[in-house]
Amino acid sequence: MISNTTKLTRENFPINPERATLEGQNKYLGFWFFLCGETVLFACLIGTYLALKNSYSTGLSSNELFEYPLILIATIFLLTSSLTSALAVYEMKRFKFVNMQLWFFITVLLGCSFLALEVYEFIHYVDKGFKFTTSPFSSSFYTLVGFHGAHVSFGILWFLTLMLRNAKSGLSLVNAPKYYLASLYWHFVDVVWVFIFTVVYLLGMVG
C-alpha cells in the first residue's frame, strides 16, 4: 500500500487503484452491496410490469405500441457506452488520465443519445394516446422504463461531476475509486437495460 504523500507515477501506480487504500476498499465493497439493493429494486419493478402487461384496458397493447427500430438504436448506443466506459477504466489503470477522461466523455455522449431517444419515444407514445394514466399496463411501463432512464441520467451527472471536479488535479488514489464505481454503476444500468429490452420489448413483440 502506498501512502498518500508519495507522488504517483506510471511506474508506482497500483494495478488496482480503486482498492489501493482502505477507503477505496470500503467504497468498492459498499458499492457492490448497494448494487444488490438496486437489483431487488428493479426485480420488483419488472415483476410488477409482468403482472400488469396484459392489462391494457382500452389503451394500446404492447404489440400495437412499440417502435422497434428506435429501440434498437437506443440499445446499441447504451451497450456501446458500456464498452467505452470499460476502456476508460482500462486507461485509468494505466495512469493515462487524459485518455480516461476522453473515453468517459464519449460514454456520456452515448448516454445522452440514449436518453434523447428515450424521451422522444415517450413523447411519441403519449401522442399516440398512451399516457401514464391510460391503463395499468401504461403506468407500469412508464414506471419501469422511466426508473431506468432516471438511473441513466444520474449516471451521466455522476460522470460529469467527476470529470469536472478532477479535470485539473489529475488521477489520484482518492478519485480512482470514484471513477471506478461510476463505471461499475454504468455497467449495472446497462445490464438492467438488457433485461428491460428482453422483458418489455422482445416479449412485447410476441404479445
Binding site: 392489462s55 384496458s57 401514464f132 395499468p136
Partner: peptide
C-alpha cells in the same frame, strides 16, 4: 397511476 385500479385490470 393505475396499477391498483381493479376496475380496468389493475
Amino acid at each position: 397511476a393505475q396499477y391498483f385500479n381493479v376496475a380496468i385490470g389493475g
